[in-house]
Computed example of a mutant assay.
Amino acid sequence: MKKIVVMASLLLAGFNLFAQQQQKEDAATFAKEIQQPGVQVFDVRTAGEYNSGHLANALQADYNRQDEFLERVKYLNKEKPVYVYCLGGGRSAKAVDWMRKNGFTNVVELEGGINAWKQAGLPVEGVGISKAQLSMDAYKSSIMKGWVLTDVGAAWCPPCRQMEPVLASLLAKHKNLKLVKVDGGNDTEVMKQINALKLPTFIMYKDGVEKGRITGVVSQETLEAMMK
């Protein structure tokens, strides 16, 4: 009897693993399910591909740049569903396989990638949108008076999004602190000039003089320490 129970458990575990490995969805199903609360949409194409059109609220990490992918994927919630896509399915399949092997409990792949999404007539965001780069002169002017915190980040960057409530709390507490945003997907010249190429990067200034900088996800207290 005991052997039967063990065998049944192994068969069930094997079935569950197989089911997870086969978890691909067509564009229509994928589109419906990403509307659920708590779903994380993950684009594993390049930043350039992302900027040419992406799914609403998608986070981004280039799977082919393993340092970038491994850095950003760790800020996704492993306990919440992650819906992954690329251009045609090749990179997303590899990304999904890695995620399942590294503790993500519910990962869904868009079959056929964003190509299949477009063929189904579903909407994408960011197409044809061009944004002027922040000039270095404008940036310098923005940091010259009082306490200023520069946030070099992007809405599609997982650790940047994780920092949003921390920054909101910091600004609510310190009314004299001004926040200046540098778009990590657009303001490349300013990023180069201030040597801030990792997202997110935070730089604290007092009257135009740098008082400290830090990268990655940090606490409010760590940011406040740069004001002392």
Score class of each variant (00 low, 15 high):
Asp187Ile: 02
Ile203Asn: 00
Glu71Leu: 12
Ala8Trp: 13
Gln220Cys: 04
Pro37Ile: 10
Lys2Ala: 14
Ala31Ser: 13
Leu17Asn: 11
Lys24Trp: 06
Leu223Ser: 10
Asp67Met: 11
Gln193Pro: 02
Asn16Tyr: 15
Ser9Glu: 11
Leu76Val: 07
Gln35Thr: 06
Leu134Trp: 01
Ala31Pro: 02
Arg100Thr: 05
Gln193Asp: 08
Leu170Met: 13
Pro165Val: 09
Tyr85Glu: 00
Tyr63Lys: 10
Glu33Thr: 05
Gln23Val: 06
Asp137Ser: 11
Asn77Arg: 08
Trp117Asp: 09
Lys131Ala: 04
Leu177Cys: 09
Gln22Ser: 14
Lys3Arg: 13
Arg91Gly: 14
Leu17His: 14
Glu111Ala: 14
Thr150Trp: 10
Ala31Leu: 01
Lys74Ala: 13
Pro159Ile: 06
Gly38Cys: 08
Ser219Ile: 03
Glu25Trp: 03
Glu125Val: 13
Thr105Trp: 02
Met163Ser: 06
Ser169Leu: 05
Trp98Gly: 08
Glu79Pro: 11
Leu70Asp: 11
Asp151Asn: 12
Asp26Cys: 09
Gln23Pro: 02
Lys24Asn: 06
Gln40Met: 03
Arg65Tyr: 09
Val96Trp: 02
Ser219Ala: 12
Gly184Phe: 05
Lys192Gln: 12
Phe202Leu: 09
Ile114Glu: 01
Gly128Val: 05
Glu25Pro: 01
Arg91Phe: 08
Thr46Lys: 03
Glu189Asp: 10
Asn176Gly: 07
Leu12Met: 10
Ala138Asp: 15
Lys3Val: 13
Gly103Ile: 02
Pro158Thr: 12
Lys228Asp: 11
Glu111Cys: 03
Gln21Ala: 12
Arg213Ile: 13
Gln193His: 12
Lys181Phe: 11
Gly103Trp: 07
Lys118Gly: 04
Leu70Arg: 11
Gly184Glu: 07
His54Phe: 04
Gly121Asp: 06
Gly184Asp: 03
Leu17Glu: 08
Thr188Lys: 15
Leu149Pro: 08
Leu134Phe: 05
Asn51Val: 03
Arg65Asn: 15
Leu171Phe: 06
Leu10Thr: 04
Glu210His: 06
Ile194Arg: 01
Asn115Pro: 00
Gln60Gly: 09
Ile34Ser: 03
Ile129Thr: 10
Cys157Tyr: 01
Glu49His: 01
Ala56Thr: 12
Asn77Ser: 13
Asn195Arg: 12
Leu199Tyr: 03
Gly38Val: 04
Val152Asp: 04
Lys175Phe: 00
Gly128Ser: 10
Pro81Lys: 03
Asp26Gly: 14
Glu79Met: 05
Thr215Val: 04
Glu164Ile: 13
Asn195Val: 00
Gly153Ser: 10
Trp156Val: 04
Gly208Trp: 14
Asp187Pro: 00
Gly14Ile: 00
